[in-house]
Design a protein around this nucleic acid. Structure first.
Length: 593
RNA sequence: GCCCCUGUAGCUCAAUGGAUAGAGCACCGGACUUCUAAUCCGAUGGUUGUGGGUUCGAAUCCCGCCAGGGGCGCCA
């Protein structure tokens, strides 16, 4: 937030380096001063000293004590820089140059900036770049469980974050509405459920029938041939089969709409698997003609020998199978035309795939194939946003066949019931409607937060106990801090006081809170660059904690006039910042709890 | 066999190559006639899997080993 000051100081230090003939570093390392209750920026001279030591050794063979030299340089820099405007104190410690902000001036600037920007506080300027993000990718005719949830929650948050960072974002879904799993479902329906219709909970019913199909088919070769026969009827577009496929497919799609509405997720464009089948098969033929793909039919499938085409001696991309030996399509058959279509339709600067880590090699193969078939520029723009799975305690995989699925609907219902019970207890004066809204916000926050608050490369372990624990490091804690802020603001007699110079000495908890608030913009940029919502769950939690500390330590409404005005503005800024961060994470910020 | 990821407090997880490795949960002890106690304060808890290396400086980078997970020609 104080890039201007930092830049000025950096220029000053660089001038000093040039004058003194010290080695220059490409990137000057700036960081917040890492001590609690301190507010300012810090840069290290250890790198410069190390470079100097190396030059000296090369020239004269003399050894240099690096930390000592860094301290000397930091001291010289401190003297040279003096006391820049709006800073309170400058010091050289252990090879670091520390510059402490004047709390009054800077805190006012932070708070004013937040209140002026409001819902857009922390948002970056438009970058003029477009990013297409494909996420969710559900299978019709199957259940929707907590394993699928991570993808949706992560994809949605990433889209929000990229948008806030200044990108134009296209949210894309790719629904898998064809394949063996669909045929199995149709077979089971025709044979045992003909004429039945789904209830209110569509996805569950679809999933149940699919699970039942698998059970009936398990190890039964006779029935398997029935399924194969049905598959070929579907393949030949038998009108009766197609009609049922279309109708049942629609049931699933309605179920997905319910789920996305429940989660508060939307898409700009939905691609369907079945639309890619023909273009895919056409593309395969074309690639065979061009000699890129190798047609081993009927003995083998159609393949692309990537390592060979790329002239790689070491086994890297291996072989990609793009069409079955019987001519039916695979994922790859359809993913290739889809990849092309995305660029043709939207021409994105980046094409992001939010897909779990198991598909890493596969996606690298798809991207490389794009390059090999004549679109190296597009291949460059593709990015696999990989994330780990959601497991159950004891590293148990969630699988319908194992009977270990936790359905999203069940999870949400349990969490809402638990939240409702707490709201009723904590805040009995609320209307039933308000309680309902609050428990919805709390339950969904509690469910989403753990999916975002760990690194993408880490497995999320789902267990009921911690999913329903709303205390501590969890979304409800963050939501609650913001509710407390709201509660103070509601008690103001008049409107929020206008900007005013802060001249009273700030409490450490105030400084800590303002410091964290001021980091939102930079953290949003970092989260976008690294595709890591984790940075924002961290910041949101820390800001909430800082607010709770402040709340405990500093009276607001009862403070004397100047403090009261400044603190009211700080409370409003904190509430706004926390709410903004929650919004990016796809978590609602209720007014009361 | 090859490739990828992970290993940090009893548990779940943080930590731009940087100063003193931090939170929550659990456990123990405190704080509500005061802006919502879904909160706060305090105590306990660490050889960052292990052995080397690079570096002024390593949880972080490199190499070896150990442990767990995942992926590798017609599953999605």
């Amino acid at each position: 937030m104080f890039e201007v000051e930092q830049e000025a100081i950096e220029q000053s230090v660089r001038r000093l380096c040039a004058e003194q003939g010290w080695p220059a570093v490409a990137q000057m390392p700036w960081a917040p001063i890492p001590f609690g209750g301190e507010w300012g920026i810090s840069t290290s001279f250890l790198q410069i000293a190390a470079l100097e030591a190396r030059e000296r050794k090369a020239a004269s063979g003399e050894e240099t004590n690096v930390p000592q030299r860094a301290q000397e340089r930091a001291e010289q820099a401190a003297r040279f820089v003096g006391l820049p405007a709006a800073f309170e104190r400058v010091e050289a410690v252990k090879g670091y140059l520390n510059l402490y902000y004047s709390p009054g001036e800077f805190s006012q600037r932070v708070v004013d900036a937040v209140l002026e920007a409001g819902e857009a506080y922390g948002w970056g300027a438009p970058k003029g770049k477009r990013i297409l993000v494909e996420f969710s990718q559900p299978n019709t005719h199957k259940a929707f469980h907590v394993g699928h949830l991570r993808n949706v929650v992560l994809g949605d948050a990433i889209c929000n974050i990229l948008e806030a960072a200044g990108y134009e974002v296209i949210r894309a879904n790719y629904i898998n509405d064809t394949g063996l799993h669909v045929i199995k479902w149709l077979w089971n329906y025709e044979k045992h459920h003909r004429g039945e219709r789904p209830g209110a909970d569509r996805t569950r019913w679809m999933g149940d029938l699919y699970a039942e199909a698998n059970q009936r088919l398990e190890g039964n070769a006779e029935l398997e041939t029935e399924v194969r026969a049905l598959y070929s009827r579907w393949d030949q577009r038998d009108p009766k089969v197609m009609a049922l496929w279309e109708e049942s497919r629609q049931w699933s799609l309605e179920g997905f709409d319910q789920i996305y509405a429940l989660l508060g997720v939307r898409f700009d464009h939905i691609f369907y698997d079945n639309e890619m089948e023909k273009p895919g098969q056409k593309l395969v033929e074309e690639l065979i003609e061009r000699g890129i793909a190798l047609d081993e039919r009927p003995q083998g499938p159609v393949i692309i020998r990537l390592d060979e085409l790329l002239g790689l001696k070491k086994e890297t991309y291996r072989v990609l199978v793009i069409l079955r030996s019987d001519g039916t399509s695979l994922y790859a058959t359809k993913d290739l035309p889809l990849a092309l279509k995305k660029f043709e339709m939207f021409n994105p600067d980046r094409s992001v795939y939010v897909i779990d880590v198991r598909q890493s090699l596969y996606l690298q193969q798809i991207f490389k194939t794009l390059a090999v078939i004549g679109h190296p520029d597009w291949a460059e723009r593709c990015y696999h946003l990989s994330y780990e799975l959601v497991n159950l305690p004891g590293n148990v995989t969630i699988a319908s066949r194992e009977g270990t699925v936790v359905l999203l609907e069940d999870l949400v219902r349990e969490a809402k019931a638990r939240a409702m019970q707490i709201v009723r207890e904590k805040n009995p004066s609320l209307s039933e409607e308000e309680m309902e809204a609050v428990s919805h916000a709390v339950a969904l926050g509690a469910i989403k937060y753990p999916m975002l608050a760990r690194d993408n490369t880490k497995v999320v372990t789902f267990d009921w106990e911690s999913a329903l624990d709303f205390n501590g490091q969890a979304a409800p804690y963050i939501q609650y801090s913001q509710v407390r802020a709201n509660s103070i603001l509601k008690r103001m007699e008049a409107r929020l006081p206008g900007p005013a110079r802060v001249s009273y000495p700030l409490e450490p908890t105030e400084i800590q809170l303002i410091d964290l608030i001021s980091r939102a913009g930079a953290e949003i940029q970092r989260a976008a660059e690294e595709f890591k919502p984790l940075h924002l769950t961290n910041l949101a939690y820390e800001t909430a904690r800082a607010f709770n500390d402040f709340y405990a330590a500093c009276p607001v409404l009862k403070a004397e006039e100047e403090k009261r005005a400044a603190r009211l503005r700080l409370v409003a800024a904190a509430r706004q910042t926390i709410a903004n961060l929650l919004r990016l994470l796809g978590i609602r910020a209720p007014e009361v709890m």
